[in-house]
């Protein structure tokens, strides 16, 4: 399968990656090669096989419902670019 330039742009947008438009043909080629490589798996008959949810043959261990965390807001926020009134500030998402 070969990806179109539009598909490359869409994938970049979904991943929030800015890409150089010059490089789009190269991305299309590389990504298409990766897909072709994975595509080989479609030749295998997987009917009746349970999809693997996790490579480890183990099951989830749960924790008891207890509050174990304390407030460390100040420490967490000292690495944030901008904070105010205890909030993290980010570029506006709704106009």
């Amino acid at each position: 399968m070969s990806l179109s330039p539009e598909q490359v742009i869409k994938i970049a947008n979904l991943a929030r990656i800015a890409i150089d438009t010059q490089a789009i043909p190269r991305y299309a080629e590389n990504l298409s090669d990766i897909l072709a490589f994975v595509e080989q798996m479609n030749r295998v008959d997987t009917s009746g096989i349970l999809p693997m949810a996790h490579p480890l043959e183990a099951v989830a261990r749960c924790r008891t419902d207890e509050v174990t965390e304390t407030d460390h807001r100040e420490q967490f926020q000292c690495i944030a670019p901008q904070v105010e009134a205890g909030l993290y500030l980010v570029p506006k998402v709704i106009e």
Partner: peptide, 14 residues
């Protein structure tokens, strides 16, 4: 997300 005015930014409470 709090969209009130924070100098044109949004405030996030997690």
């Amino acid at each position: 997300s709090l969209h009130e005015d924070f100098h044109g930014l949004s405030g996030i409470d997690l």
